[in-house]
Structure formats: C-alpha cells, structure tokens
Amino acid sequence: MRQAAAVVPAGALLVAVLLVGGCAGSAVPGPTIGGTPGGAAPADAGPAADPPGTPGSSSPFNGTDIAWLQLTVAMHERVLPLLELVPERTGEPALRRLAARVRDTHRAELDLSRRLLDRSGAPKTNPHEGHDMPGMMTETELSALGTAPDAEFRRLFGQHLREHLKQSVRIAGAEQRAGAERETTALAAAIVRTGTEYLTQLGELDG
C-alpha cells in the first residue's frame, strides 16, 4: 500500500515526497531550502564542479526546479496510459471528453518538462523511473482497469485520476514557492490552474 505524503512546509514538500516514495539519495541535488541544497558532501570529498542548482553555479535552475521536473515527468508518464484507456473502456461521453482534455494537457506539459530538464543539464536518467510514488499509477492498478466492467472502470478511473491531480497540484504549488527558473515556475503555475479545473470537473461528474 502506498503511503500518503506528509503535510510539511512548502519549501520542504518536494523533499518529503521524495523520501516517502523511497527516492532519497538520487543522483541530482536535493531541493534548495533556505538557500542550502539538501544533503552534504562527505568530509573527505575533494573539490567537484557545481551541479545545476548549486548556489554559485551559472544555472538558473535550482535543486527544487530539477527535482520537481523529474517527478512531474515520472507522474505524467504513468498517468497517460490510464487516460488512453478511456475510449476503449467506457462509452460515457462526459468522461471521454474530460479524459481527452486531461490527456492533451498532460502531453503538452510532459513535452515541456522534458525540454526544461534538457536545458537544466540534469542527468538524462529519471531517478523516479520504476518507483511507485504518491499520485502515480502502478502496473497492477492499470492492469485491473484493463479488465474492469464499465461501472467499476469509471469508479476506479475517477479515484486514480483524482489522486494524481491532487498530488500534481500539491507539488506544483511547492515548485511555485521554492523554484527559481522562470519558465519552470510558470509551468508549475499552469499545472496548478489546470489541475484544479480538472478536479472540479471530475467532482461534477461524480455528482
């Protein structure tokens, strides 16, 4: 059973999400909190080049930007197969329209997130790949949806999409407050806005 992310101050939220999901110790710098990147080098470590997000480096991206982009890529990649199941699993018109809108939005957000990560100079390998984090679909859940009857599919779809959207909005809000790179924080603001709208529309379908 996946654990829920703890409620923590905005600047530390991404750190909590990474720890809860078992992704601490990734090869990228931790989110910057109070001007200090998470984690410290061993006492006997020699001099090394500043990674993206390190104070004093020339990169406009801080550790929070990179951690958030990596997590957003992983979450969006996991939810897209769920959204793509809808046309073949249910004939409910309103649900099909909502799923199509969310799918198109997520594809655009995923594309931009990947381009921003490339620009940041972060490692190409996503440290969250293959991990089951809060708000992420698992292979088991996706498999169950593939064989669920229509009514059960609609119930589970709403449950999983709601969890994904809530977590996406939550960590995007943290990026808005603690991130540094302008286009990345603008993407976070857009995800908060569209995610909140989609949550409202999902609630209306449930009603």
Score class of each variant (00 low, 15 high):
residue 132 D to S: 06
residue 118 D to K: 03
residue 109 E to H: 14
residue 183 E to H: 12
residue 149 P to R: 05
residue 100 A to D: 13
residue 171 I to C: 01
residue 142 L to H: 13
residue 174 A to D: 08
residue 65 D to Y: 04
residue 105 T to K: 05
residue 103 R to K: 01
residue 141 E to T: 08
residue 129 E to H: 12
residue 174 A to Y: 09
residue 149 P to Q: 02
residue 99 A to I: 07
residue 102 V to H: 02
residue 77 E to V: 09
residue 76 H to F: 07
residue 62 N to G: 00
residue 107 R to H: 11
residue 156 L to C: 04
residue 124 K to G: 13
residue 162 R to F: 03
residue 87 P to W: 04
residue 161 L to I: 09
residue 183 E to D: 14
residue 70 Q to D: 07
residue 91 G to S: 15
residue 164 H to W: 02
residue 109 E to A: 14
residue 67 A to F: 00
residue 156 L to Y: 09
residue 186 A to N: 13
residue 88 E to A: 13
residue 165 L to R: 10
residue 91 G to H: 10
residue 83 L to E: 10
residue 97 R to E: 15
residue 63 G to N: 07
residue 174 A to G: 09
residue 175 E to P: 10
residue 131 H to Y: 00
residue 121 G to Y: 07
residue 62 N to P: 03
residue 176 Q to T: 04
residue 188 A to Y: 05
residue 96 R to V: 11
residue 172 A to L: 01
residue 107 R to V: 11
residue 131 H to C: 13
residue 142 L to E: 01
residue 141 E to A: 02
residue 75 M to V: 08
residue 120 S to W: 10
residue 74 A to V: 01
residue 180 A to R: 15
residue 162 R to H: 04
residue 113 S to K: 11
residue 189 A to V: 10
residue 112 L to F: 09
residue 86 V to R: 02
residue 128 H to P: 06
residue 171 I to L: 05
residue 102 V to R: 09
residue 95 L to E: 12
residue 81 P to H: 07
residue 73 V to R: 06
residue 65 D to V: 10
residue 91 G to I: 03
residue 157 F to D: 08
residue 154 R to P: 04
residue 139 E to W: 04
residue 104 D to I: 06
residue 118 D to T: 14
residue 184 T to P: 11
residue 78 R to H: 04
residue 88 E to P: 02
residue 123 P to L: 04
residue 134 P to V: 01
residue 131 H to K: 15
residue 151 A to S: 12
residue 62 N to D: 08
residue 62 N to I: 13
residue 80 L to W: 11
residue 155 R to N: 01
residue 59 S to V: 06
residue 174 A to W: 13
residue 170 R to Y: 14
residue 71 L to I: 02
residue 97 R to P: 05
residue 126 N to V: 00
residue 155 R to M: 05
residue 187 L to G: 03
residue 86 V to S: 11
residue 88 E to L: 14
residue 119 R to F: 09
residue 112 L to I: 13
residue 181 E to P: 01
residue 118 D to Y: 11
residue 141 E to D: 09
residue 165 L to Q: 09
residue 119 R to C: 00
residue 142 L to P: 05
residue 117 L to I: 04
residue 139 E to R: 01
residue 181 E to K: 11
residue 100 A to T: 11
residue 71 L to E: 07
residue 190 A to R: 15
residue 137 M to Y: 08
residue 136 M to S: 14
residue 116 L to G: 08
residue 82 L to C: 06
